[in-house]
Design a protein around this nucleic acid. Structure first.
Lengths: 334, 334
DNA sequence: ATTACAGTTTGAAACGATTCACGGCTGGAT
DNA sequence: ATCCAGCCGTGAATCGTTTCAAACTGTAAT
């Protein structure tokens, strides 16, 4: 079927060992031989069989990436960053979506182990669960993306979500808002919990301010819209005067939801701020204030950490932590 | 290092062949033996080495996906659809971004060949180029995503972009617009060329209508914004009264660009329609009319076709063609 | 008692690359 | 002449799985 080193060796009148050397350590082979072998490779259209290479050499050339939802623009950017960085090393990225479901996460991790990936970048569905720790100890290099394992010990790249939550709510308070609502997904998602915690801390300095927490099932536009409608239907006295959403998708949804009844205006009646600063935040009906995360850089950094872990077996474990950045737009204007 | 079939065989007191059979054809093995081997597998934590499996068995369990830009929401959805469908078959998806660059496309295809992927789903940078045809003939199963190879012969899943362009412009004409502008990326992108062709056909029936073509380098929000600003700066007489953008990102950009000067209003002065109906189209400053493509279904269908091609070596080559759907919102209102 | 047969299990070959101990060659030093 | 050191190149062993012909077992039919 396909051309193997043996064929190439025959065509170039050398041994298979030499072909392998041309492929992997050209400097150890006489230039003339290299040229001859290369010519044979080109002529026959030889393509290295990575399975065999991997089997013998141990190492593979792919890394696994498991995110909560790759259709979410934030994760799409993270994936993009990882893919670009990996490509520079000649590595391929295997993509998996856990949809926040531990069973799907497990299925992907298992599949990736079978594929003998070099390592896994994981946005865990549940950091507290022992599964992540066990995985880390099972020998497969692991980097936590957008989170940090409580006990340390596993390299990770994260954004300080508590800080991000503080930034957002501090900004709302600064604008004179006092009746804050936090709209988020399930608190079991660490990012959500941390952003809420940040909100709480920002409120600590302002005793007369209140915080209402609205918990949803998922961080989607649709869920946000429902929450927005619910708020719009309330009497003005019971309505918050500012909403901090756990991500931009929710915020966009809230914007739609409040717009439907047409009574609550953003930012007049309701200041609104999201999280992630996805591309569309600035293009929303009312340009959306948000907290920016360097998504692409996060993906790239994760691959970087994995490469480090691969190079220096058991060396220092690094944690990269990006700082979030407040982006003010019309939705929190006066 | 890691546990192999040999270890499992020893632990269960059977031969390696039997272990393999338990793994691949449990029905050929006596139930009691299956149980014993399974127990050993669980106890030892055996994970099948896919490299070895692949080497011997020929087949692999991954498929490659090369798209123009996975951060583009349309392709992100396509990727999601592909990934979901592949996961159902226990297959993993390798993701690659060509960024419309033939050299990056080639690099990924080469990498994927080395990985011995089962097949490749490709959104080609250049369909006319012989490279795609050569690839298809090189033995690696190929499915064209969002396009169709002129000569046939390669399975493909596409959306009728000409039809989509017609829908969009026919709608603009119906709204009484006559000075239409088409804003698109490089015409070398087939999708762009087809949508433009559709626009032309729609115009054919209305002699007094005109079409201006504005060609950009890329289909991004930023490029759209520049184009929008340029249009906004024109005198009213030289301005189109409707714009059809080759995708929603451009349309969102145009919306931003025209808004900056504040003189051109959408849809009053300028009707605007995009393409793809990404999630944010309905949440834009002015909810955006668009042409919807079933992105996730496209990805799933592509995997489906690949599986068919894999099963029935050289059987009928199918082309799946989805129909685009017009979605009318405020941006093309009166 | 012999043969047939289906159901199980075995064990060695094969997949295609990498690795490494070893041998041949060349040319300069002794 | 002899020896040594560097280069180059060789080819068998190896990785972990699948495959398949052959061997084995016990039961049924003759």
């Amino acid at each position: 079927m396909s051309v193997s080193v043996k064929d190439v060796a025959a065509a170039a009148a050398v041994s298979v060992g030499t072909v392998s050397n041309v492929l992997n350590r050209p400097d150890k082979v006489a230039p003339a031989t290299v040229a001859r072998v290369q010519a044979a490779i080109d002529r026959l259209g030889f393509v290295r069989n990575d399975a065999a290479r991997q089997l013998r050499a141990g190492r593979s050339r792919s890394i696994g990436l498991v995110v909560l939802d790759s259709a979410n623009p934030f994760f799409a950017e993270v994936a993009r960053g990882a893919e670009e960085r990996a490509a520079r090393e000649g590595m391929a990225v295997l993509l998996g979506n856990s949809d926040q479901t531990p069973s799907r996460e497990r299925a992907y991790l298992e599949l990736f182990r079978e594929q003998r990936v070099n390592g896994v970048l994981l946005t865990p569905t549940d950091l507290e669960d022992g599964a992540v720790r066990r995985l880390a100890e099972s020998g497969i290099p692991l980097v936590i993306v957008d989170g940090e394992l409580p006990g340390g010990g596993v390299p990770s790249v994260a954004v300080d979500d508590v800080q991000g939550g503080m930034l957002a709510v501090a900004h709302l308070l600064e604008q004179g808002r006092r009746r804050i609502a936090f709209i988020g997904g399930p608190r079991s998602i660490r990012q959500v919990a941390d952003r809420l915690e940040g909100a709480r801390r920002a409120l600590a300095g302002v005793p007369e301010a209140t915080l209402e927490v609205i918990e949803l099932d998922a961080l989607t536009v649709l869920q946000g819209r429902d929450a927005g409608e619910e708020i719009a239907r309330r009497s003005p006295a019971e309505r918050p005067d500012a909403v901090f959403c756990a991500n931009d998708l929710l915020a966009v949804g809230v914007l739609q939801g409040t717009a439907i009844l047409g009574e609550v205006r953003v930012p007049g009646d309701l200041a609104l701020i999201g999280y992630d600063d996805i591309d569309f935040a600035q293009s929303a009906v009312v340009p959306l204030s948000s907290v920016r995360q360097p998504a692409r850089a996060i993906g790239a950094a994760a691959v970087e950490l994995l490469l480090e872990a691969l190079d220096s077996e058991g060396a220092a474990i690094r944690h990269v932590r990006f700082q979030p950045e407040l982006v003010v737009r019309a939705s929190t204007g006066r």
